[in-house]
Design a protein around this nucleic acid. Structure first.
Lengths: 210, 210
DNA sequence: GAGAAGCGGAAGGTAATCCTCCGCATACTC
DNA sequence: GAGTATGCGGAGGATTACCTTCCGCTTCTC
């Protein structure tokens, strides 16, 4: 029942494991981390037995998917920062185009269950913090450039995008470009024009790391 | 088993019915329209039996709660339009302070199940349309005033607030004023400053009424 | 105070999901 | 190419959550 005894996996087992993680990622985005194990297995073209052999319970699966996703998101964040000319451009690219960001934030924040699983695991939690600090870097940079209004914190940005990342209700999701338009409107809300004064104090990174 | 034979309800029965609707409303906001019947009954300080006697199934309950909520939301919309000096102020007041708006939009759009129940009932559906056209009135008015950017439609506004109306994840909901800040940021995104050009065409009222 | 109307909540039914187990299949080793 | 360890699938028992009904008791109303 132990999962990683050090001996390398057989080739087919390795392949199956990867398929399971990929399927679970897709499923978690679409249905949240409560998606039935059986459906995940089916999506991975694998029997439930195989799923349970590799990931003895749901928590393990969530943790592994999260780890995988955080890693990819971090890579995308780094690439955005390095390749885009300004911090604002990097921020836009990251929040707008990163499916991985989407899944990460979903796993890290939206579901209470998944959130707890992730926070209770030191490794995953460390990755999550690195990811948040990358986001912080972009936001602060964009503020320094004068592109983002000064009265917000990184927490505000994360919060806004947590909202946006949720699956839209079916009827609405089918409208062309709905999600893109919402995203654009939110980004405009973040920009540096005067706008209206915001209530309360900015929500910072630390607010998200209790 | 028939529910409304015309004979007026006994006083205690009437009271219980009101309590049930109130409890269901609260529950639907917090948990969505799948909230367990038993919990709704408990919140109404009533036995499940009583709940089922008055509302023979979940659909009936959803329909009645929706009807009640749409009616109140329409009243609030009318009051906003009449009492506020500008259409923009009316819009802000309505989306910002109306709990009823919150519930209505929740019921009407978010849950596929509830959405179908509502759309299949002619009365509820008519109310829903009136509500949407009130919103349309406010948005177009605010655009005419130059307060809202011209490149959006009422559907965009509805969409944005559908997102916002969702319950935030627990951890985030406890942060002071998080919801208010998100709301303010979204409203700023709607304002008339140039901002960035939006992708796709505006989403109109009609897009929401298929 | 009598009868109609209403009440509560135990209990049986149903559906969805979890997870285990074991006979069969496949990949690696020599 | 034969032998063996490793891995596979998916049926099925266990569990859980929820729905809904039913009936003996209570509360209104006249």
């Amino acid at each position: 029942m132990a999962v990683d005894p050090g001996t390398p996996l057989r080739a087919d087992a390795r392949r199956n494991r990867d398929q399971i993680i990929a399927a679970a990622r897709t499923m978690f985005v679409a249905q949240g981390p409560d998606a039935p194990m059986e459906e995940i297995a089916r999506a991975a073209a694998v029997g439930v037995g195989t799923l349970y052999r590799r990931f003895p319970d749901r928590e393990t699966l969530i943790r592994e998917v999260a780890l995988d996703s955080f890693t990819r998101a971090m890579e995308e964040a780094r690439a955005s920062i390095e390749e885009e000319p300004t911090a604002w451009d990097a921020l836009v690219r990251f929040v707008r185009y990163s499916r991985e960001f989407r899944l990460s934030i979903h796993l890290a924040m939206i579901s209470a269950q998944a959130g707890a699983v992730i926070r209770d695991d030191p490794t995953t939690e460390r990755f999550r913090r690195v990811l948040l600090s990358d986001l912080d870097h972009m936001v602060k940079g964009a503020q320094a450039e004068g592109q983002v209004r000064p009265d917000i914190g990184t927490g505000d940005v994360a919060l806004l995008f947590v909202l946006l990342m949720r699956q839209l209700p079916h009827q609405l999701d089918s409208i062309d470009g709905a999600a893109e338009r919402c995203m654009a409107l939110m980004l405009d809300g973040l920009r540096a024009q005067p706008g209206s004064p915001l209530p309360n104090r900015p929500i910072t990174c630390e607010d998200l790391l209790p």
